[in-house]
Nucleic acid binder design. Structure first.
Lengths: 187, 187
DNA sequence: TTTTCTTGATTGATTGGTCAATCAATATTA
DNA sequence: TAATATTGATTGACCAATCAATCAAGAAAA
């Protein structure tokens, strides 16, 4: 319970500052405990941040699983896209955290591995849903395109540039998907 | 000359560490001067980093201008895309710097403004080239799509995920562009 | 030409502040 | 009592920024 409170505090703190450059004191203070307690529970700052990212990924994973349950074909694809821009995920704090963790991943092997696992899972999900609709190579490429678009829209949201609202972000990605599915017919 | 050396050293240092969390000492040392000199020339760390980002943007701007010179239509669009993935721009150090500055921009108004100017310029360039080929709204949306794709591919490159080489990145974006241009006919 | 002045470049050493981490001590719970 | 939770205070490291002092070079004056 304390762990959970500290992780939530970390997300809020990271979201506000827009980077991982937050102090243990601030996180602990936000959770209403002393800095020393944060060390007691997590061992060190790096571990707390790692646990925070893992928590974000775990929630996203849960959302994804429940969103695609029972769906197939293009409905499944739209569900995958929708989750990434759901009001729970496509929030300033979460986006700022993503961005900050991407940067940190360049230093930390552990963190990079964690992010890689998530990226692969998203990729598999996309390819799996695309396989019945496109050729194998086109399914791969389209999955990469969708993933890149999602990442790009996240960044642009963080900078408050580009399409600011989830609706147009979804529209943009779905438009891409539609073109790819149509295009395979005449190409 | 000293300024230039310090800026170059900053880019290398940022690229290696993968974040702006580099010390003045390291940058100065890399440039073969004392930390105090870096302060003498730039005033402070923030100013040095700001100048570094401005330098990166200025070079990109120069590359862009010379690449599109005299071109129009889809050739111009392909040139814009190509510049972003040229061997000079699509390098690990530069990409790491971009990512790091994106994060820092959430804190620094100055930096955010700088990045915003660049983003707008890219957007205008894209829309200008797309206007003759698509409706106004579709040109806007396509420009946003391309920009998001480029950002996304940059991120994925930073994490060494997704299409690692410039060639497939270009292919992905050009494929998107092609679909949009074709699609406008039958849609 | 030599000497003195002036200025910008450059450095080493220092300072002040920040922060993660530790630890000893106290409270709470089982 | 034993174990766990929790804190305040402290330590040690790191780093940006400052500053006084040197150095090199060129301008002015003799």
């Amino acid at each position: 319970m304390r762990r959970q409170a500290l992780i939530n505090a970390a997300i809020v703190a990271i979201g506000e500052r827009g980077s991982l450059d937050v102090t243990m004191s601030e996180i602990a203070g936000r959770a209403g405990v002393s800095p020393a307690l944060a060390h007691h529970y997590f061992g060190g700052k790096e571990d707390l941040l790692f646990a925070t990212m893992r928590h974000i990924l775990a929630e996203l994973g849960r959302d994804l699983r429940s969103a695609v349950e029972g769906l197939a074909g293009s409905a499944r694809l739209r569900a995958i896209i929708g989750v990434n821009f759901s009001s729970k995920q496509f929030r300033p704090e979460i986006i700022a955290a993503w961005l900050a963790f991407y940067v940190e991943a360049q230093r930390s092997v552990r963190l990079r591995r964690l992010l890689r696992v998530y990226a692969r899972r998203l990729h598999s999900n996309l390819v799996f849903a695309l396989k019945p609709l496109l050729s194998a190579t086109e399914a791969e490429r389209t999955a990469e395109g969708i993933a890149a678009l999602v990442d790009g829209l996240y960044i642009r949201r963080a900078l408050k540039d580009g399409p600011p609202d989830a609706a147009s972000a979804i529209a943009l990605v779905e438009d891409y998907l539609k073109l790819k599915l149509e295009g395979s017919g005449n190409a």
